[in-house]
Every structure is written in C-alpha cells, then in structure tokens.
C-alpha cells in the first residue's frame, strides 16, 4: 500500500541543481538506504518525500497518489530528524504525545498509545523527564517513538545515528532493523556511513552529485559496483584503470578489485614492491606497487607480513576482478 515512486524528479535552488532527473521506486515494507557523500542530494530527496521540500519538476507518488501538492502534515509519512528535533520545553511524554494531539486522536487513547510507543523503543522510565536530561541514545529513542506513535506507513530517518558513539550505533542499527521487520512499514534511511548502509539495507541506493549512481541489494553493489565512484565509496576498493586491468589478465576496461580478494604470494605472474603497511586490528592493509599502480591487499591477522620494500606476488581469482560497465 505504501510504495513510493519518484518520477523524474528535479530540484533546483536558484542556479544550483540539487537533484537531477531522478527516478526511484521504493517497495512497500522495504528498508531502503540512501547512501552518499554530503551534498549528493540524498537528504533533499528524503525531504521531498516528507513534503518539507517541493520538487521543481517531476512527481512524487505515495501509495498510488501524486502528493506533490500535499502538505507535509497530510502525508502519512513520519520523519526522524538528524538532530532529533525534540521540543525542549516539553517532557518526553508530551513530546511523544505531540503528533496525537495535532492529528486529533481522541484523548482517551493517548496514554495507551504513548506507552506502547515508548515500550517499543524501550523508553519506559524516562517519560517525565525533559529532553535536556537525556543522553543522545535516549533522545534518539524518543524521536523514534514520537515518529512511530501515529503508526505511519513510511518512516524517514535522516542520519539518525550520526551523533552516537560506535557501540551504541551498532546496537541501534540492530534494533532499528528488528523494529522495521516487526512493524512491517517502509523505512527510508539516509546515511553517509557505508558500513551502516551495507549492514541495514534491503535495498541500497548510492547517490552522487544529485543522481543515483547505482541501486540494488548491498551484496550486489559491493560485489558488482557499476562505476568507479560506487566502487570507491562503498567499501574500500582497488579501482583499476584499463591498462592495469589488462596487465592483470582482464579486458582493457576499468575494473574493481577488493583488497580482501588479493592474496600475497611468493612470486607468480604479478609481482610488485611493498610500499606501506597499515595495521587495522582485524588484519593489515599492505600497499603493493605494481605496473604503475598501487594496489591494497588485506592480510588477516596472524598471517605473516612482508617488510616494506620487499618483493611480493599478488594472487586472486579472476572472478573477483569486477569489470565495470561505466567509467
């Protein structure tokens, strides 16, 4: 019921074009992640779905209806804002109650629904406090409860975990994913963190310069990036120019080779010189100079590491060498 279709959307701000001819189909009950560097149009796209911005051209269709002219308040879409946008003068209880009051939900239902939403995000004991007295993670939960209390069909999340530390971030990622599966509503999640995007998305749209560079499952995008930008932005990758690809035995085309697909060998058809080592905890990243290009190989912890300046061979499965259709 709540599939979302963006049809040839353009958003201009004066001379600047934020979003350029974008089309995007979001399935019902899907967890879609919009990933991209800052200024790539991902947040603008989300804000247009929410109704906080209107597209300059094109149509936004939610649940079969064109909603271009419909005010944010009349769209059955809720948003979790980047800074949470909680009302500092209201208690947590009143914050969660706000949408119920605004949408004219009968007062008799308020308490039950507020407590239900608070329980859903495990927020039971803070209801009397003001947002100022809560930690970042707790505020995050309040913002979620407030967005969900009205049971929207679509939940938009604008970098909701950006302000949290790593541990809490990972815990919230799991919780959000579980919540989405339990509620069965559409989630659109904006982030610039590729790890977050890969681990949470059913479907992942990679944005670049106001366009979608690639859309697909996280596995698909990671294994088969279509452009250099995607290969580089999602995970770390060795992006190979055509001549290097050919030197490695592939066609004369741009290609992507993930560091973890490279093995260090003794001798072999491809040899080079170790230029740098970087310790990453779970392993090390070894930079090897070959045929005018520098390739990074990931060596898991516990395996022997070469000295800088040593000559090593590089081995890989031909299948791991992904030739890109775009440039």
């Amino acid at each position: 019921m709540a599939s979302i279709h963006l049809q040839n959307i353009v958003k201009r701000y004066g001379a600047f074009t934020g979003v350029q001819h974008m089309s995007l189909d979001i399935q019902d009950e899907e967890f879609l992640v919009l990933l991209g560097p800052s200024g790539c149009g991902k947040t603008t796209t989300m804000r247009m779905i929410a109704g906080l911005e209107t597209p300059t051209e094109g149509n936004i269709v939610i649940g079969g209806e064109v909603v271009n002219e419909i005010d944010a308040r009349d769209r059955d879409v809720a948003m979790v804002f980047q800074g949470y946008a909680l009302y500092p003068n209201m208690s947590i209880y009143e914050n969660i109650r706000f949408p119920l009051r605004m949408r004219g939900v009968p007062a008799a239902e308020h308490d039950r629904r507020i407590r239900q939403a608070a329980d859903m995000v495990e927020l039971g004991s803070f209801l009397d406090r003001k947002p100022g007295a809560l930690s970042g993670g707790q505020r995050q939960r309040v913002a979620l409860a407030r967005a969900l209390v009205n049971e929207p069909r679509v939940l938009l999340l604008d970098e909701p975990l950006g302000a949290l530390d790593l541990k809490l971030r990972e815990a919230m990622q799991d919780e959000l994913k579980a919540l989405q599966q339990r509620l069965g509503i559409t989630f659109v999640f904006v982030t610039h963190d590729q790890h977050e995007a890969l681990s949470m998305a059913d479907s992942l749209a990679v944005f670049n310069e106001g366009r979608i560079a690639q859309i697909g499952t996280p596995e698909d995008i990671y294994a088969r990036p279509r452009t250099r930008f995607v290969a580089d932005f999602v995970g770390s990758s060795n992006v190979l120019p055509p001549d290097v690809t050919r030197a490695l035995g592939g066609p004369a085309h741009w290609a992507s080779l993930r560091p973890e697909s490279l093995r260090l060998t003794f001798g072999g058809p491809v040899t080079g010189t170790v230029t740098a080592l970087r310790y990453l905890g779970a392993g090390s990243r070894v930079s090897v100079q070959i045929a005018g290009a520098e390739l990074a190989a990931f060596v898991p912890a516990g395996q022997p590491l070469p000295e800088p300046g040593a000559s090593v061979g590089l081995g890989f499965d031909m299948a791991a060498l992904h030739v890109m259709e775009g440039a």
Partner: peptide, 24 residues
C-alpha cells in the same frame, strides 16, 4: 527543524504557532 518536525507530525500552521513557536 523543530518547525519542520511539527509540520511532519501533523500540526497546521496555527497549531505550530501555538504549540511550538509561542512556548519557545
């Protein structure tokens, strides 16, 4: 963002004025 959140959560302009802008 507080005003945008208000619109997003279903408040009209008058409601936003009364419930968000005026108290703050």
């Amino acid at each position: 963002s507080l005003l945008e959140a208000s619109a997003d959560l279903g408040a009209g302009r008058a409601q936003t004025f009364r419930s968000v802008i005026l108290p703050l």
